[in-house]
Design a protein around this nucleic acid. Structure first.
Lengths: 202, 202
DNA sequence: GTCTATAGGTGGATAGAC
DNA sequence: GTCTATCCACCTATAGAC
């Protein structure tokens, strides 16, 4: 399966994505992309007329790639604990590249985002939490996982915790910190450990 | 104990603080503060010559207030579980006001911050984690808490998880979500629950 | 599709009167 | 301490030639 030569639009998205993940949506400009891609700002506006549209495409592409990764995990045949570890690994690899999760970063910028982007960011988290909730639900049913309360509430807590662990670890330029924190988080869901039957449901 | 009439500098900090907590450091301007305080931008520069200095003062004040709150918790006489609940409550009240933690927000903006602000943000987290680590350590010693691994690693994981829970809950304009997530997090440390002896140390 | 040129606005910051 | 006036850099976005 060959990788096609990247068209200009994809190259723009690649650069913009990294800029948003490192600096945030309000702290990068068309000029930054133009300089890196060796084109003028006007050329960028041909591909993405407004910054809001560029942002929207960024989120859509990111979400599609994320969902594809989740599908691969589902098809990998591992048990629920392995699935959760693979899920965390997605985050870890982003962080190893010195980046924050795109939508975690946009969650911080949320108040200032154009309405279309707000909606798309929420959609990313909804998709994430839906996958996690289903994974947690079926894992508990199979007794591979054990936890208190609803799978949905547990999924929401886990997503938030991972995003925060990423945020702090990136600040300290210390990916090991994320792995330590995520190991601790997942341990609370493993059926084997005595950490599993947590407190009252939410 | 009377509250003194707020001087201009404090009023500026109050407004700037809320703007940073809601919009981020790069998404507010002197013009925003000036409009709200009904003064000119030039007046603001008399009190805080540069935005970097304003930001530095914001962090220092926030940290001082936070440390004071932690001292009050220590003097409250509650057990370790009550202390942790009171700690989480500090976050919850900020969120109830529609705000993100000041330094959690600045952690997202971290790459773009002036060096003096970067240092101050790290200092805030260090102080937080030091208090939490000591609270966890002594709580485990007194058998009020139970958890695996070092108190420092546990404190780091907890701080990250709370910041992330805040970030996501604020995006959804749903403070209840934060309370649900934080309850779940704290449950993993209570000695009474079977959730306490978590997996391998980090 | 990419360019030059520019519009129209806002950013942080300064000089100097009052 | 606060004001008016201003500077210059940067922002997103557009018009129109090639």
């Amino acid at each position: 399966m060959l990788t096609a030569a990247p068209d200009t639009a994809s190259q723009i998205l690649d650069i913009a994505e990294r800029l948003v993940q490192t600096r945030g949506f309000n702290a990068f400009s068309y000029a930054d992309i133009a300089a890196e891609l060796h084109v003028t700002k006007a050329s960028l506006h041909y591909h993405f007329p407004t910054k809001a549209e560029l942002g929207r495409h960024l989120i859509d592409r990111y979400r599609t790639a994320f969902v594809a990764a989740l599908d691969r995990i589902d098809r990998s045949g591992g048990d629920s604990n392995a699935k959760l570890r693979a899920y965390v690994q997605i985050y870890a690899e982003v962080l190893d590249d010195g980046r924050m999760c795109l939508c975690g970063m946009l969650a911080a910028d949320y108040v200032t985002l154009p309405p279309t982007m707000k909606e798309a960011v929420r959609g990313f988290f909804d998709a994430n939490e839906a996958w996690l909730a289903e994974t947690l639900r079926s894992g508990r049913k199979k007794k591979e996982l054990a936890f208190a309360g609803s799978p949905v509430a547990a999924a929401q807590a886990l997503v938030g915790a991972l995003e925060g662990a990423m945020l702090v670890a990136r600040m300290h330029a210390n990916p090991a910190r994320f792995r330590s924190a995520s190991r601790r988080l997942l341990a609370a869901y493993a059926a084997g450990s005595r950490a599993s039957r947590a407190a009252a449901p939410a």
